[in-house]
Design a binder for these strands. Sequence first.
DNA 1: ATTATGACTGCAG
DNA 2: TCTGCAGCCATAA
Length: 111
Amino acid sequence: MQGTSKQTRYNSIFEVVERIPAGFVLTYGLVAGYAGLPHGARQVGYAMHVAPQTLPWQRVVGLSRRGFGRISIADPLVAAIQRQLLEKEGVEFNANDEIDLNRFAFDPILK
DNA sequence: ATTATGACTGCAG
DNA sequence: TCTGCAGCCATAA
């Protein structure tokens, strides 16, 4: 193929993301690991940036230094939309705007 | 080819 | 506890 699109280039990443059930989330690093890109957390971020409208991009969140999930999108408008979509699916945020990964992370391998 | 940027993380101060 | 910065690596300029 010649015009290798971004969608084709990040196909492995998109396949992981579309498997995340509504009401659950995964961190950029975890998605990268499942996609076979152990050091590609930032690439997952870019992949979500260019993801097709049909992908549940809102289920991919950042990993806080305390081990919680958190919205890590710079654009405040997009960040607000992501939070709204997640809460609508049942994902809960604590007082620090963090997500308890022990309750909402979709991790079929670790548990 | 070289430099800058970022929807990431983790360590150091 | 909070900030800054260093590794990380694909894209953009």
